[in-house]
Write a protein that binds this DNA or RNA. Sequence first.
DNA 1: CGTGGCTTAGTGGCTGAGCCACTCATTCAC
DNA 2: GTGAATGAGTGGCTCAGCCACTAAGCCACG
Lengths: 262, 262
Amino acid sequence: MDDLEPLEKRTLVDLLTTKLREEILDGRYAKGATLPPERELADALRVNRTSLKHALMRLEQLGLIAIRHGIGSVVLDPAESAGMELVAHLVFRADGIDAAMLDDLIEARTLLGGLFARRAAERRSSAALAALAAPLDELGREPMSAADAQRLELEFFRALVRATGNRIFSLAANSMYSIYRARAHVFEGAFDDRAFIRESLERVLSAVRDGAPDEAERATLEYLKENGRRLSKSARLHAEREHAAGQRGLLRAARGRRGRVS
Amino acid sequence: MDDLEPLEKRTLVDLLTTKLREEILDGRYAKGATLPPERELADALRVNRTSLKHALMRLEQLGLIAIRHGIGSVVLDPAESAGMELVAHLVFRADGIDAAMLDDLIEARTLLGGLFARRAAERRSSAALAALAAPLDELGREPMSAADAQRLELEFFRALVRATGNRIFSLAANSMYSIYRARAHVFEGAFDDRAFIRESLERVLSAVRDGAPDEAERATLEYLKENGRRLSKSARLHAEREHAAGQRGLLRAARGRRGRVS
DNA sequence: CGTGGCTTAGTGGCTGAGCCACTCATTCAC
DNA sequence: GTGAATGAGTGGCTCAGCCACTAAGCCACG
């Protein structure tokens, strides 16, 4: 049988964090304003103050609020204070995917990917080359579902980032790709064409192996631009399917997509 | 008087988070192993379990551990699971600055800066140009301390990132620059030479204004490479001063550097 | 002899009540 | 005026306890 992913964890604090995060991102609280006092907010949400505090501290770490002793929880401007860990939450909102933000993300992935490929080609360490070749080899195996191809493509790019030798880049990539882990299925449709993926990545690997930065960047950009179009399209189709399912009422909850909880 | 930054917040949860984070980053717990049970750990640290939980949830959000109901807190590999929000903590460790990580950070800043400048020049929106010019104008004013120049230089680059029109890039920059806010003084020495900064950034602005991506990238890289050398040197000198102060014993705690708590 | 249900120990999730500490605006003494 | 004292409002932290989940061992049933 399929290797099921574990069910998504939904603790009370998760739910609280999501609810408050969405409200803040929706602009329900003005920047610089304070949230209601903890005791009040906890009462209103029917949860214990301790649980609420856990959620608030998460929001603080996300850069959405600043909790100040004796003052309250001040709402911040994410554009000023939030870090890359917010990307996933900005793209995947409660009411669906934010298309404009997804475009930004795809553009960022493309441009950064080109930069990473260039840098990897300049470095060209043998250990890194082996790590790049492994997922590409596996991409030739049978059977190979779109989900498998997607996983291997991701692995290739993670190896590419590591091949730059810069750990900051790896962390940046982790922040960007944290989306994929939880919502990979939304983009699965972009990975049907295995031949295209394999041939494109082969060209990247060759260029990196040859120590040809310009060619590595060019080949990577070429792939990522096309892949970006497909990711965008896949997300659009996914949204339409979600919408259609929504119209059929209870089917939405009963669909039973694995690895998801409503 | 100086515009003091608010005192760094040092709550119990902060201290706990720092202590545990450092222990994990030092490799005191093996990857995949579990931390001691919450009750035990709280007892050992002489704090309440609730406070410890707050700290553990922060570590989970940093990608250092995974808290699992019924199992325990599993230590993860930061290279796999941590995002850019960890950068600041990797560079600034309890026992000083991690020089290798700082090198990575400076390299990342340089390469990304070049990319951002190129993209900004391609976009070339008039609002963004105004936002770029403002800090540069102010850089010509008197009096101007190194700290002021540092602040304005940072503001210029933040404006440059915004000028790319890509919000993901802004978040990435926030993650990188979160260091500056708290530890700017470590790098202050790199901003003595105002003329160099001003002339370099003028060249960047001109290229962006002219819509010349190649030149914008070139000028930015030129500046950031030199600036990177100075940042590195400033950090090195700072570390030596710290070391010397440490040898004089209590002076370390009594020095009373503003905005810091030991 | 394996399958599935039950039990139990160990772990994190969450609660409610309460007190401490910080901030700010007001008040009051000088 | 100026500055200290006050008090209301807010978050910080603790305590004690119960609930819920996980894994492992046991046992009855087929």
